[in-house]
Design a protein around this nucleic acid. Structure first.
Lengths: 117, 117
DNA sequence: TGCAATGTTTCCAAATAATGCAACAAGGAG
DNA sequence: CTCCTTGTTGCATTATTTGGAAACATTGCA
């Protein structure tokens, strides 16, 4: 999936692929929202689909991507499947990154524009 | 780009789209590596392209994606363009997420397999 | 001015991802 | 067993992403 041209050692390559895989799993607004929703308690697929207004197949596929990346875990409960958050730190990291980027953006505007005391 | 069905308020929608945009910018092994490379000092496009074995157009496009997400910033230096890291916390967050996920994965294997003390 | 070096943009083909629907699988209740 | 609920998977369609080559723009230098 990712062509190495000999400029990168195997270990670095593996690490970057693994991390990019985590980020790719998060690279969709609905999956971000799903993860935020799972922050407080586990939800089953049908609950999530209803709450977020999704086809059940679509919800299932998004969740399976999150699971493949290791971000959530599942437990069967009778006929339903309970999804729970594994790595809450990604939510903190999202907040941190968003905060940093927005702060930087504001700082840049302050420099570009004349400040009005 | 992302259809809201009325189940989500506008603010939540915007936040998730913004964060997903950040993650999407990171959802490629080469962009992860670029960001790691920029951790210690700024690099220009040609240096990065050479170091990572990329076409200059490809390197430029990856970097512009990182810039659009606000993860890096640029400064012109004569005929070259210097890229520098804006939000180092995403690297920490990547390490944290990777660590958590791998630890969880190992813990699960320990439960599944008989432990050999 | 002419030329070299550096980046960005554009166009294209191939690969990948997202959605909705239908079919299928697995449990639980009657 | 049969039916119902819940999830997953397969398929077709559409949209997005990626990488490479070439064209173009900008800057510095002789």
């Amino acid at each position: 999936m990712f062509c190495n041209n000999g400029t990168m050692d195997e270990k670095t390559l593996k690490r970057c692929e693994f991390r990019a895989g985590i980020f790719k799993a998060l690279a969709h607004p609905m999956r971000v929202l799903m993860l935020e929703t799972l922050k407080d308690k586990p939800w089953c697929v049908c609950e999530l689909a209803a709450a977020l207004g999704l086809e059940k197949s679509v919800a299932s596929k998004h969740l399976s991507q999150l699971k493949a990346a290791g971000l959530v875990d599942t437990e069967k409960r009778g006929t339903q499947v309970e999804y729970r958050l594994v790595a809450p730190c990604v939510l903190d990291m999202a907040a941190c990154a968003e905060g940093t980027i927005l702060a930087k953006r504001r700082a840049k505007l302050d420099i570009a524009l004349p400040r009005r005391s």
